[in-house]
């Protein structure tokens, strides 16, 4: 399962647009609504993984275009450190990723989703082969 935290501006907007355009993506993607990517911190990411998510994506507005100014930019730093943390634990840093989307363009978030599910598959198959 992939937990995708989506901000209420561009990310949820883009996910709605993708729906209206009947674009298809991996059913494992589960969207969690947040006001802004800035709402998401290590707590949320770790909780999702502790509760059985395979990976976590955070999707916000374009860098520099956060509707709250810089929430997504602050979360970028949080997520970067978390990627490092997972690497230090021997996991794939792709266990968490941070993306952007544009509300008017459904293909932007679908691109994010496809990337995340491809990365998750790669990660899971590596894990299986390690065992």
């Amino acid at each position: 399962m992939i937990i995708a935290f989506a901000c209420e501006n561009c990310a949820q907007g883009s996910a709605n647009t993708a729906g209206v355009l009947r674009m298809k993506y991996d059913h494992r993607i589960k969207i969690v609504r947040v006001p802004c990517a800035g709402r998401v911190g290590p707590r949320q990411i770790i909780e999702a993984l502790n509760n059985g998510a395979d990976s976590v994506a955070i999707i916000g507005c374009c860098f520099g275009a956060c509707h709250y100014n810089d929430g997504n930019l602050i979360t970028l730093r949080r997520v970067k450190a978390m990627k490092r943390m997972f690497e230090e634990l021997g996991f794939d840093p792709d266990m968490v990723n941070m993306y952007t989307a544009r509300a008017a363009e459904g293909d932007t978030i679908v691109g994010d989703f496809e990337d995340m599910s491809a990365k998750t598959d790669a990660m899971l198959s590596k894990e299986v082969s390690n065992e």
């Binding site: 969690v32 947040v34 006001p35 800035g38 709402r39 949320q44 909780e47 999702a48």
Partner: peptide, 27 residues
């Protein structure tokens, strides 16, 4: 926006209806 909530070390500051505890339950 909740950016403060992600920065708070103790979880003291929360956004109503997007609290840590609520997001956790949703997840």
């Amino acid at each position: 926006c909740g950016t403060c909530a992600g920065a708070c070390p103790t979880g003291a500051i929360q956004i109503r209806n997007f609290r840590d505890a609520q997001l956790k339950e949703e997840v």
